[in-house]
Amino acid sequence: MLIRPAAPRDLDAWAALRAALWPGDTIGDHRAELAEALASEGDSAAFVAEASDRLIVGFIEASLRHDYVNGCETSPVAFVEGLYVRPEFRKTGVGLALCDAVADWGRGRGCSELASDALADNLESHAFHQAIGFEETERVVYFRKPL
């Protein structure tokens, strides 16, 4: 398994995996957002996991967050914005390898903490995070009121 920075040649496969993680947007919407992100130079990074047959089996997207990150004590914090591994490749070390790539990226930018989040009902994600060394810091419920 090769973990490498995402590249323009990955857009179609990456967008399809992103749509599996976040099905509220179309593959085309994801592709357009990714193309724009690859073209910009910001405080973000993306890595893909490429199998020996060149199939993209997972991705991770991260950013440097300079604002307060729940449960963290430093700034900036390397933050996992999205992580997805095809179901048939889960529990094989791909997710850990993707997180390790982001951790290295964050350390290279002066970060001493890696943070992430997951929806309250995503117990599979909670278990994954704990299995690779994350610790739960707090739970938050967000509210809104239209004005």
Score class of each variant (00 low, 15 high):
L2A: 15
A6D: 09
P8N: 11
R9Q: 12
L11Q: 02
W14H: 00
A15R: 04
A15Y: 02
R18Q: 12
W22P: 08
W22K: 13
P23F: 13
D25R: 15
T26L: 07
H30C: 10
L34H: 14
A35W: 09
L38S: 08
A39K: 05
S40K: 14
G42A: 05
G42Q: 05
S44M: 06
S44H: 08
S44V: 06
A45T: 07
A46W: 00
A49D: 04
E50C: 07
A51G: 08
A51L: 07
D53N: 13
D53T: 07
D53Y: 10
R54H: 15
L55I: 07
I56A: 12
V57S: 11
G58A: 12
G58M: 11
A62W: 05
A62H: 04
S63C: 11
Y68S: 11
Y68A: 13
N70R: 11
T74H: 06
T74F: 00
T74Q: 05
P76F: 00
V77C: 01
V77W: 01
E81C: 00
G82T: 04
L83I: 10
V85T: 11
P87E: 06
F89Y: 13
V94I: 10
L98T: 03
C99D: 01
A103Y: 05
W105T: 07
W105A: 04
G106S: 05
R107K: 11
R107Q: 07
G108H: 03
S112N: 06
S112F: 06
E113C: 02
E113D: 00
L114Q: 03
A115K: 01
A115I: 02
S116Q: 03
L119D: 02
A120P: 00
L123H: 00
L123Y: 00
H126W: 00
F128L: 01
H129T: 01
Q130I: 04
I132V: 14
G133D: 08
Y142I: 14
F143Y: 15
